[in-house]
Amino acid sequence: MRVRLKIWRQKSPNTRGQFVSYPVDNVNPDMSMLECLDVLNEQLTENGEEPVAFEHDCREGICGSCGFMINGIAHGPLPATTVCQLTMRHFKDGEELLLEPWRARAFPLIKDLIVDRRAFDRIIASGGYISVSTGSAPDGNTLPVPKEAADRAMDAAACIGCGACVAACPNASSSLFTGAKIAHLGTLPQGKPEKDRRAIRMVTQMNLEGFGGCTNIGECTGVCPKEIPLEVIAAMNRDYLRGNWHARDNVVTTIRPFTEWSYGSKLQIDEQSQS
């Protein structure tokens, strides 16, 4: 089958980007979207052109590296599927596909379809963990976990941090991501002791990163490749309210970016390769 890929090409964060249209003629319907881009990139390399930059790693839908907009929908039209798992047979022969990177201030563009999602890392670093004392592992089953809590925590833990929720949100809010982490850890008995502090820190970090605010539209859940429910955002709101009520001081620890990279000002990828 044949497709025409209209892809956002942008050399570096500070240059202007535009859509460039590429015909891909020898597409196997069983290829994934990323393999289709691989075929295109081989063509481009043979022609001496710059290949399209896109992020990928496991290609089995569990790492959260890949992801871009296909015809205006994050991860493409198939629900609960990342672009690496989206096979080309879901598109019509001769169809034109519009490939666009995630668009958000907190996700500055690096190149073509790649954006800097380290804002997510900082949200995790601010509180998305459980503090444990080191030493030998505790005996199994010493801490009873209700089956229902384990299931709910597992559902929330399915979040791979791909950023599709931010990309699809009309507010560019990262509430589904942050909520998934807070619900995942807060549901389990191991995470309960740090519940209040975690919610305050992660919410504060999320708000510092320049994401928009959640207005309960729910577009995020429709594109989430792991089908994280809107319930996790309520869990975040609940823990945040509770944490503010319980807190005895006003001190919040957040994570500062180590470099100015995440704001794009010192990012020099192309400048170096050109010289």
Binding site: W8, F19, M69, N71, G72, I73, P79, L98, E100, R103, A104, R105, A106, L109, A168, P170, N171, A172, S173, G210, F211, G212, G213, T215, N216, I217, G218, E219, T221, G222, V223
Partner: peptide
């Protein structure tokens, strides 16, 4: 203030953006 944040949060808009599950009232 939330609307102002919304505008700031996505300085470069999408060429095409489709709504998948949200309802008209919420948007």
């Amino acid at each position: 203030q939330l609307a102002a944040r919304k505008i700031q949060a996505r300085p470069v808009g999408y060429a095409k953006h489709e709504n998948v599950v949200s309802d008209y009232a919420s948007r």
